[in-house]
């Protein structure tokens, strides 16, 4: 067995989703290689070579990969697939975009969003917004998998000594081109890997009111998230969304503020270690999953909580 992890990076460092996929790869067994496609990505390759458990780093350094278009990255992955039994990537917007295309080109099934490895071809994954857990066995010779980041510890970024090999670019599919991006800039930790997440829902009433959550998140060293309702209402951008079809988070502490707790939202955060709910409706379903609930006006309680955290214990 040999596993290829299709790596995602920002030009300087590997994404946490890739490090979690490396851990899943080690559970599958066999050698672990990481593929990096990028333009001027030598620093990432050196960082990837140090990741514990990685044997080889394959680098396709070409201007073609300056932005990871699915058509071109899938073409590259397929050109290298011959030597591998398993092809893995994180189940984030990069992996979800690229890997099913790879699977189809190889005429094999994909197992999406795995949460556990039970055998080389047996995986556990959530279905129905995590309201059921399905154990599936792949029957194809090659297995394509995307990995839920919160279900696997990220591999250590030190301790490895992998060999770096250059691989040729696979050519431009000529189907798509990159125009631009409007990315949220934040000094706060990334939502999916933050130790603390403070999320707001429709109860926040406006985008301005999210400043209350930002202050609380900053006090706790956390990230700010939101329910679908808050994103749909335009309070915050789409990348804040936690839930079945948004981001999956599992922080040490999740604070849900003004969020009623629809099953689609719970799907994205119910694996958090400790959940706190602040809501004025004591019947809100969020209280059924919260370890600590407090019923009341968030506009009073959130500033009060931020202030209380300033005092030493």
């Amino acid at each position: 067995m040999a596993v290829l992890v299709v790596g995602e990076h920002d030009g300087g460092a590997l994404k946490a989703a890739t490090l979690s996929a490396v851990t899943a790869a080690q559970k599958i067994g066999g050698g672990v290689s990481v593929l990096l496609a990028g333009s001027g990505c030598a620093p990432v390759a050196e960082a990837a070579a140090k990741v514990a458990g990685v044997d080889r780093v394959l680098v396709a350094d070409d201007p073609l990969y300056a932005n990871p278009l699915a058509e071109n990255v899938a073409k590259l992955v397929v050109s290298l697939a011959g030597g591998f039994s398993h092809l893995l990537a994180g189940a984030d917007s990069f992996g979800k975009n690229v890997m099913p295309r790879v699977a189809a080109l190889l005429d094999v099934a994909q197992v999406s969003d795995i949460m556990a490895v039970e055998g080389p071809k047996v995986f556990v994954r959530p279905i129905y917004a995590g309201n059921a857990m399905q154990t599936v066995e792949a029957t194809d010779e090659k297995v394509v998998v995307t990995v839920r980041g919160t279900a696997f510890e990220p591999a250590a970024v030190e301790g490895g000594a992998a060999k770096i090999e250059t691989v040729p670019a696979a050519g431009d599919a000529g189907l798509s081109s990159y125009v631009g991006a409007a990315l949220s800039r934040s000094e706060r930790p990334e939502l999916t890997s933050a130790r603390v997440v403070v999320s707001g829902g429709r109860g926040m009433q406006s985008g301005e009111n999210f400043h209350l959550l930002e202050k609380l998140a900053d006090k706790l060293g956390g990230a700010v998230g939101a329910s679908r309702a808050a994103v749909d209402a335009g309070y915050v951008p789409n990348d804040y969304q936690v839930g079945q079809t948004g981001k999956i988070v599992a922080p040490e502490l999740y604070v849900a503020v003004g969020i009623s707790g629809a099953i689609q939202h719970l799907a994205g955060m119910k694996d958090s270690k400790v959940i706190v709910a602040i809501n004025k409706d004591e019947e809100a379903p969020i209280f059924q999953v919260a370890d600590y609930g407090i019923v009341g006006d968030l506009f009073q309680l959130v500033p009060e909580l931020t202030q209380a955290l300033e005092k030493p214990s």
């Binding site: 099934a109 995590g130 857990m133 399905q134 599936v136 792949a138 959940i275 209280f287 600590y292 609930g293």
Partner: peptide, 18 residues
């Protein structure tokens, strides 16, 4: 191409305290 071996309930989260 994928064989479902089993489908189970996820671990239940207990409601905590107010």
């Amino acid at each position: 191409r994928l064989k479902t071996l089993k489908v189970v309930e996820p671990p239940k989260r207990q409601a905590g305290i107010k």
